[in-house]
């Protein structure tokens, strides 16, 4: 079988005309800008502050996903924007992972899964995009760090090369590999050991390598499914900082069970419950003054 080289990924330039919507100054000043944290939430909201801009990249429109007869996601609609971090929270089994995996059509790999609704990527229905191309534009990082069993360098190079090919010499790929590692904040730590087996890195480094790998494809959207749940607090901190830094270049969606984390890094938060999206609002609003009772209960329950 022959595979064509994926065409270069179209990236929008961030100039005035294409900025879809300038974020209005938040009605409630973000924490770290003087406002007190909502009760129960300790620690400062990251100092980076409110997003500078936001461009709508993906649009989930009335999406439902069922496994066999069981509905896991029930008519969810939500926007995914570049320039900000979207966090998805909710109790276990509420469909966060299913929703996330629908965005790059990974759910299709589950034979029992059926869908209705639409997901748009830059106004194109994702079901019309070839899955391998879509998955290079919407890449994903998993809960368990899962570098490939090869060297650090080859982990990134694998993404850059077309399908199973080994062509393209190391030399020609070097700049791209280095820049991906740099964007994931890993380059300084591994630059002398690019030939070392990736599975010998620490858990936190492995996860950042996975982020680097996901970034190497030059995606427009980065999906993270509980990326820190297997990591220690320090690695978590590093990755959180990284995620916030990335939001200007890619639309970031993160699933997390850690509400503090959602509060620290997210600009918008979606609360899901039993497959439904109960509430979607800005992080400060959702944690500070949730509109829905269920959100209120979940958010406060987790903090006593």
């Amino acid at each position: 079988m022959e595979f064509v080289t994926p065409p270069p990924i179209r990236r929008l330039e961030l100039n005035e005309t294409q900025v879809a919507r300038q974020i209005a100054p938040p009605t409630q000043p973000a924490n770290g800008h003087g406002a007190p944290a909502p009760s129960g939430f300790t620690g400062a909201r990251r100092s980076i502050g409110a997003p500078q801009f936001s461009i709508r990249r993906m649009e989930v429109d009335n999406l439902s996903v069922s496994y066999a007869k069981r509905e896991a996601v029930k008519s969810v609609s939500l926007p995914i924007r570049q320039g900000e971090v979207l966090a998805m929270i909710g109790p276990s089994g509420c469909g966060k992972t299913t929703l996330l995996r629908s965005l790059n059509r990974l759910t299709e790999l589950t034979r029992t899964a059926t869908f209705s609704g639409r997901i748009l990527l830059d106004d194109v229905d994702t079901s019309l995009i070839e899955p391998t191309l879509l998955r290079r534009r919407v890449t994903m990082v998993f809960q368990q760090p899962n570098p490939f069993p090869m060297s650090v360098f080859d982990n990134i190079a694998y993404v850059l090369r077309e399908q199973g090919s080994r062509r393209q010499r190391k030399k020609t790929l070097e700049p791209q590999v280095h820049s991906a590692l740099e964007r994931a904040g890993l380059f300084e730590e591994v630059k002398d050991n690019l030939d070392h087996p990736a599975l010998r890195l620490s858990g936190g480094q492995q996860q950042r390598l996975c982020i680097a790998r996901a970034l190497a494809a030059e995606p427009e959207v980065l999906l993270l499914d509980e990326p820190c749940s297997a990591l220690d607090p320090q690695s978590t901190q590093v990755i959180e900082d990284l995620i916030v830094k990335l939001r200007d270049d890619v639309a970031v969606v993160i699933v997390t069970h850690n509400l503090q984390q959602a509060y620290r890094i997210a600009d918008h938060v979606a609360f899901m419950y039993l497959g439904e999206m109960v509430e979607y609002s800005s992080a400060t609003a959702l944690f500070g003054s949730p509109r829905e009772k269920r959100t209120q209960e979940y958010v406060s329950g987790a903090f006593g």
């Binding site: 790999l109 391998t132 191309l133 890449t139 899962n146 490939f148 069993p149 694998y158 399908q163 790998r213």
Partner: peptide, 26 residues
Amino acid sequence: PQHVREASYAVGKTKIATTRRILLPA
């Protein structure tokens, strides 16, 4: 682990490429 395969699919690799470059070497 299943998530290793999915990690490869999630960067746009086909099943064949994943098998050749990841699964069989592993």
